[in-house]
């Protein structure tokens, strides 16, 4: 069995599932690679703790890493050990 580090990250790349097995890509114009993806935050954040803000920052960081980093970098941010136990 392959290590789960690889496996868990695969979840992030699961395309939309449908009765036709695959759906078309959704694309926009070619972006500048240096631009940053911003993750909006709902009004609930007005009262959030620093820890929750840190969680949101981490999600935003990962969104940007998804496109501009190595698989190893992305894997390092996941806790993955289930399949390796089988």
């Amino acid at each position: 069995m392959k290590p789960l580090l690889f496996f868990s990250v695969s979840l992030l790349f699961i395309p939309l599932l449908s009765c036709q097995e695959k759906t078309p890509d959704i694309q926009t114009s070619t972006p500048s690679e240096t631009r940053k993806i911003y993750v909006e935050r709902s009004s609930l954040f007005d009262n959030y703790s620093d820890q929750k803000l840190q969680v949101a920052d981490f999600v935003e960081l990962y969104f940007n890493l998804m496109y501009d980093s190595t698989l190893e970098d992305r894997n390092a941010l996941w806790d993955s050990k289930i399949l390796t136990h089988q």
Partner: peptide, 23 residues
Amino acid sequence: MKGNFEKGFFFQYAPQILGIRAM
């Protein structure tokens, strides 16, 4: 998270965190 979305999609349509729940 990434799905089939190109990076440019997220420049145009920013994802949103609806909320964060402490577990």
